[in-house]
């Protein structure tokens, strides 16, 4: 059960909102070092699942285990402290703080020294081509830059193990998308960060992820390489049937 290579285990996760079953018994596992895609039509329950992994919601039923430990029901900051970062579908950045201050928050909560946090932030902002804006108020950035900042902010956490991203490529300029993809590949190779990425961009997911999990109407309907799942009738139905 507690296989060392499994960093994340979803075990029959059910989430009910009023009368609506947003997640209906979802089970799957993610291995350490993987870049896993999570796809499915609109309203299939992807964001709801992520919100449970990161503690925004508690699961109605089932278990979510991270490195063998149950994490559903824990507070988001506790889960963050365990080495899980996330991004939001609609970027959530601290608009009235500067770009640099945004970067420092996860480093400070982790107890990094000022020096370490600042050096790290400079490096990452350099990488993301945001250095020139570091002392600007975040609200002066573009929508794509919000998303980019949100993503590199998560990399501020030292010892980041699992990064959960909700639609990181949605609505961003091609050049920014390139930076995001590069950062994911780099962090995965150099730091062995595991990724769980929700996206509608099949081509990008196909190139990044060796394995994808498909949700439809709150349930897991398929899993495998992009090529494999694309030929499964249920998956085709889910996408065509709306």
């Amino acid at each position: 059960m507690n296989n060392k290579n499994k960093i994340l285990e979803m075990d029959n996760v059910v989430k009910i909102f009023g009368g609506l079953k947003a997640n209906n018994g979802v089970s799957f596992e993610v291995e350490k070092g993987e870049i896993r895609g999570l796809i499915g039509p609109n309203g299939s329950g992807k964001t709801t699942l992520i919100n449970q992994i990161t503690g925004i919601y508690d699961a109605t039923e089932g278990h979510i285990r991270y490195k063998g430990k149950k994490i559903n029901g824990l507070q988001p900051d506790v889960i963050a402290a365990m080495g899980i970062m996330r991004t939001f579908q609609v970027a959530r950045v601290f608009l009235n703080m500067t770009v640099l201050e945004n970067m420092l928050i996860p480093a400070f909560t982790q107890g990094q020294s000022n020096n370490e946090a600042n050096t790290r932030a400079e490096e990452l902002l350099d990488f993301a081509l945001l250095s020139r804006l570091k002392n600007k108020p975040t609200k002066s950035l573009s929508g794509g830059q919000f998303m980019l900042l949100q993503i590199v902010r998560g990399f501020m956490r030292k010892g980041l193990e699992l990064y959960v991203m909700d639609e990181p490529f949605a609505g961003v300029h091609q050049s920014i998308k390139g930076i995001i993809i590069k950062s994911i590949k780099m962090m995965n190779q150099d730091k062995n960060v595991t990724f769980l990425i929700v996206s509608h961009e099949m081509a990008t997911i196909s190139s990044l992820c060796s394995k994808v999990t498909v949700l439809d109407k709150g349930a897991r309907i398929a899993e495998g390489s992009m090529k494999e799942v694309a030929n499964i009738p249920e998956v085709i139905d889910a996408y065509l049937g709306g």
């Binding site: 990161t54 925004i56 900051d77 959530r92 601290f94 928050i105 400070f108």
Partner: peptide, 17 residues
């Protein structure tokens, strides 16, 4: 920093620890 982050977006603040 934390107080300002809470005002701007408390959900993001929590997710950042």
């Amino acid at each position: 920093y934390y107080l300002k982050a809470i005002r701007d977006d408390s959900i993001a603040a929590r997710s950042m620890g």
